[in-house]
Amino acid sequence: MNQLRQSVLQSFKKLHRTRLKVFAGDEKALLAARNKINEEYSKNKHVQDEEAIKTMIKFGEDVERELRTQIIQAKEIKPGVFKARITDDTLKLDNIPFNESAILDEEPNQRRPCCQSEQQNKQPT
């Protein structure tokens, strides 16, 4: 259990370090993230089940990765012009231009069947 406790503390500290990097200069976001991290860890400090703790550690690691790679700070430097702070960790994808010919010509009020109704129709009765 001592090793598990150490993993929980490492996860907690890593989330806080990531919070400091991601929201640098934004006091409101820094405080909100700090409160949320502390609240979630405090809420679950009574948990004794090792599998549940491991699951929560994994969830904390996933949240840390999302914060580090998906969050971008943008600041308006003049009306309509923003400066984004993109880090080396920020996930960057190829920008694919919009293609109007890819849009299907359908009547706006025409209902399309959902995948669940299609599956129900395929099941033997």
Rank of each mutant, 00 (worst) to 15 (best):
K28S: 05
E76W: 05
Q110V: 04
L91G: 01
A33Y: 01
R65S: 06
F23K: 08
D88L: 08
R17A: 04
L93G: 01
E66P: 00
A102F: 06
K92E: 00
K13Q: 12
R68K: 10
S42V: 13
K92A: 03
D62H: 09
M1P: 10
Q10D: 11
V81F: 06
R5P: 01
E40Y: 07
N35P: 02
N38H: 12
K36A: 12
K36G: 00
H16G: 03
K58A: 12
K21A: 09
V81N: 05
R85S: 06
P113A: 02
S42W: 11
T69M: 05
G80K: 09
N44T: 09
L91I: 00
N38D: 15
S42Y: 13
M56Q: 13
G60N: 12
Q48I: 10
S7M: 14
R5M: 12
H16E: 08
K54E: 04
Q48K: 11
E107W: 07
Q6C: 04
V8E: 00
I103L: 11
G25F: 02
I72Q: 07
D88Q: 12
K54R: 12
I57D: 00
F23S: 07
E66D: 13
V22G: 00
A29P: 03
R5A: 13
F98N: 05
A33R: 02
R111G: 00
V63Y: 00
S42F: 14
A24G: 06
N2W: 12
L15S: 09
E39G: 08
D26E: 08
K83M: 10
Q10Y: 10
E107C: 02
Q10F: 07
L31N: 14
V8D: 01
L67S: 06
K14L: 10
A33C: 13
A33P: 02
K45D: 07
N35E: 13
K83H: 11
R65C: 04
L9M: 14
Q10G: 06
Q116A: 11
D89I: 02
K28D: 01
A24C: 09
G25H: 01
E39D: 12
A74N: 10
M56W: 05
P113Q: 04
E39R: 15
P97S: 02
N109D: 12
V63P: 00
R65F: 10
V8H: 02
P108H: 13
I86S: 06
T18Q: 03
K75I: 15
A74G: 15
C115K: 15
N38Y: 07
K21Y: 05
H46K: 14
P113N: 04
Q119N: 10
D26L: 11
K45G: 01
F23T: 11
V8A: 03
Y41Q: 00
E51Q: 14
K45V: 07
Q116P: 03
K58V: 02
D26K: 12
R19P: 00
I72T: 09
S7H: 13
A74L: 13
Y41V: 03
C115I: 15
L93E: 06
Q120K: 13
Q10K: 15
